[in-house]
Amino acid sequence: MKYMIMMFGGIGTTLENRTPDWITGMQDHMMKLDQELRDSGELVASSKLIDPSQAKTVRFQNGVPVPTDGPFAEIKESLAGYWIIDATEERALEVAARVVEYTEFPMEVRQVMHL
């Protein structure tokens, strides 16, 4: 099974009032986890997205699609990055838990549908 593990928020909200040590620690933590998923061959894809404050949303207004500045969701609910891993749900939840343990921010785990 493939699962997408999603992080939300932007660096503005996630890293506000953190110390440099906390930030460095989080980056190390994430990089180690990322490397572990690569080495084990579980990683299918992963990307970080630019801060949601830079997002544009295309809306249907007065019968035409119109691009506007800003994300669709609240910044703290906006997608920040994801991993897709090929593993059991139990393993996907474990990976998410290891991030949440450090950041204390929630993460979402969803199965990727088959074609």
């Binding site: 009032n17 440099p20 906390w22 930030i23 980056q27």
Partner: peptide, 11 residues
């Protein structure tokens, strides 16, 4: 990463 750390270093 660099810019975030610079910001955090000033708080």
């Amino acid at each position: 990463r660099y810019l975030t750390l610079r910001a955090a270093g000033l708080s």
